[in-house]
Simulated assay, not measured.
Amino acid sequence: MSSPSDPGRKPRVAVVFGGRSSEHSISCISAGSVIAALDPEKYDVVPVGIAPDGRWVLEPVDEGQLALGPAGELPSVTGKTEVALTPGQGLVVTDPGDVPNVLGEVDVVFPVMHGPWGQDGTLQGLLEMADVRYVGAGVLSSAVGTDKHFMKQLFMAAGLPVLPYVLVRPRQWERDPAAIREAVEALDYPVFVKPARAGSSFGISRVDDASQLDEAIEEARRYDPKVLVESAATNAREVEIGVLQGLDGGVPEVSAIAEITVAPEHSFYDFEAKYLEQSYRIPASLNEDIVEQVHDLAVRAFEALDVEGLARVDFFVLPDNRVLVNEVETMPGFTATSMFPLLWQESGLSYPALIERLVQLALDRETGLR
Rank of each mutant, 00 (worst) to 15 (best):
D120Y: 09
D107C: 08
P52M: 04
G125M: 05
Q65N: 06
S142E: 03
E73G: 09
I50V: 15
E82Y: 02
D107H: 12
G97D: 05
E105K: 15
V83T: 04
G64A: 03
G118W: 14
V45E: 11
P87S: 05
T78G: 07
C28D: 05
V102P: 01
D62F: 06
P60N: 02
E59W: 06
V16T: 04
G118A: 10
A37K: 13
Q89C: 06
G145Q: 06
P70Q: 12
S21I: 06
S76G: 05
G19Y: 07
A137N: 09
S30I: 00
V16A: 03
A31W: 15
P96T: 13
D39W: 10
A137Q: 05
I50C: 14
R12P: 00
V93T: 06
L74E: 14
E41A: 15
G72Q: 10
V109Y: 10
G49H: 04
R133K: 15
E128S: 09
G18W: 10
P47W: 09
A84R: 15
V46L: 12
E73V: 11
P70Y: 08
L91M: 02
T78W: 03
N101S: 15
V93D: 06
T94H: 03
S141T: 00
G118P: 11
Q119H: 10
E128A: 10
E59K: 00
V99I: 13
V57L: 05
V135T: 02
G88M: 07
G125L: 06
D39R: 12
S27N: 13
E105W: 11
S25Q: 07
I50K: 13
G49T: 08
G32E: 10
A37H: 09
V93I: 15
P87D: 04
D107L: 13
V102Y: 02
T146N: 12
V77F: 05
K42S: 11
W56M: 01
L140E: 12
V102E: 14
E23A: 11
P47A: 00
V48N: 06
G97C: 12
D147Q: 01
V77W: 14
G97I: 08
S21L: 08
M129Q: 15
S141I: 00
S141E: 00
Y43V: 03
D131M: 13
P100W: 13
D98A: 15
W117L: 14
A137R: 03
E73P: 08
V102S: 08
G125C: 09
R12W: 02
G18K: 04
K80I: 11
P100Q: 12
V15A: 00
V92L: 12
G90H: 09
T86V: 15
L74W: 07
P40V: 09
Q65R: 15
D147H: 07
G72A: 08
